[in-house]
Design a protein around this nucleic acid. Sequence first.
DNA 1: ATTAGGG
DNA 2: CCCTAAT
Length: 641
Amino acid sequence: MLQKRLLDYGFSGYQVPFIPRAARSARKRGLIREKAADNLSAFDLLATVAGKLLEGESSQHTPDEKDQLGNAQDVVMQEQDEGNLCVKDEHCDKGINLEIGLQVEDHDCIVKEISGPRNDASPAPASVITSSHCLEKDDFLVKMDVNDDKSDFCSHSRNTEGYAPGHTDSSIRNGNESPEEHDGKGEILSGNGLDMHCSEDPEFFDGDSPAVASSDCSIKLSLGVDHYPCRDNNNVKVVTRDDDENSSECTQPSTMKAARLPARIGDRRIRKLLASKYWRVKDGDHSDTGLRCIYRSRRTGYKRQRSQRIYPFKKRKFYHYSSLSNSDGDTGCKANGSSSCVAGQSTSFASRESHVKLRIKSFRVPELIIEMPETATIGDLKRSVLETLTALIEGGLRVGVRHQGKKIRDDNRTLVQSGICHDDNVESLGFILEPNPSHISTPVSSDNSLMLSTDVPQPVSRCPITSANNDGAYHDHMVTNLGNLVESDHDSAPSPAETTAEKGAVDFRALVALPEGTPQALAVVQSHQKSKRSEMAQRRIRRPFSVTEVESLVQAVEKLGTGRWRDVKLRAFDNVKHRTYVDLKDKWKTLVHTARISPQQRRGEPVPQDLLDRVLAAHSYWSQQQAKQQLKQPSDACLLL
DNA sequence: ATTAGGG
DNA sequence: CCCTAAT
């Protein structure tokens, strides 16, 4: 399955195996640039990655929010003795450890783990990415760990009930805290209001953990996010900003507790990870959480109400999800001990205060496409990989959330509404690191369809077509509004340049690294032994249908019926070279299927329900027509005889 | 070259 | 999307 997927979709990213305690704070910026690409300190790379991540997130607060957050307590990012990057709350004397690891696997399958206390001045051999490394998709895995259990922060937090960022609201919270939380790890949660827990799960540190192994190549950023039992006033704040609008944070006021680390990372307060060993963001003694809560309640009041109104309608179906949960064990509960696991038992409060336990083991970067000439050297490949990776991260990142395979775009939706309930398997939830659109260069292509795979507001009109056509037979409207699609096809045999432009600029998530001077045949880098495919024709790049395209397709089919794909193509996609009638037929097939399954099962850019309705309508209509024709055929045949 | 379906 | 069989 995995193999198949890889074949189908090509490179989807890199995995940088997690390495405990590998990360050390970076000393400088631009290390990647400064150093030869083939002699890059793995740690530097990691540090850079981390820095970029932090920066990317931090640059997205709205001014408004920024002000609010400005009063948060100090946070210090520093290097700990263990050699881990550490986010530390100065006032609270507690913090979060960030561990970032990189692991490089050589041809000989020897896994060189980049770990160990330090590698500043002279990186250990294993910490250097050299040309001897054949970087493949599975070689990279960046994980960022939080609150290492070796950190004494945990214990500190235990005694500091009062300092925590959540003080303001912690007082409120504490009233309901379950006993377990007053000892052991549980305390951490209650104490600091940050849900970062100490990673205790052995698997968590294991580069071979199921999750890591199973997920296709990807950059992984692991955050230990905790959750916890139903309690009021706790807010889990999963930083999943989307560029759209101010209130981008997926903060579910009434249901979650602030997951501090993510929040932190997303915070402006974390300015420069790489700038110096120590870094801090100055400020007040206010508890961060408290402020946030206040801020939130003020700002999202309306939305919350609205959400709750909607809730009753959607509630039922959301509770079905748990059954769909991934079987891939490793739930947060398992890793966090008793106090955490109570979450699932707080059903009685489900309607109101159920908490969702999240353990973000990693983030996934959807696609990372690299094309290299077959004659390129391994060194070239590595360079490309690095460049691609760097380019990806440089522009800043956003976090996407997907549940049950479906991307959740609406930041205002509550967890419940999204079907993310406490009893839901954690694995069904995914986080994706996405390049920040605002940093992407203007696409060369005007193909809007490609845009759809991103979160960029779609320029394409989505206005539902006036369905005057739905009444009678579908023979009236001849609308062919495909203006948007017409110019969208440079291809059939996409030139490297075009591919680069399209994927890198438009699709955002797909980055193509093309080494200088080698315009010959391009071989899509395929991870494992898939080189045998080199001879065969390249699989066409995947091009998800945009809503606009779907709309056009639906219109055409409504008019022409199924079974006349060539005509459909001519009518609606005549100018779109990359959409063959077979493609259209296939798309229709999937559309019909999509329309029949529950919305939760669908994936990809959501197709407006009204369109799906039309699909079903048209499908059934033409099916009948076809049936009638079948009956008529015999007579026709007779007439002919 | 198209159509229809399974993969 | 790919692959094929059947038109």
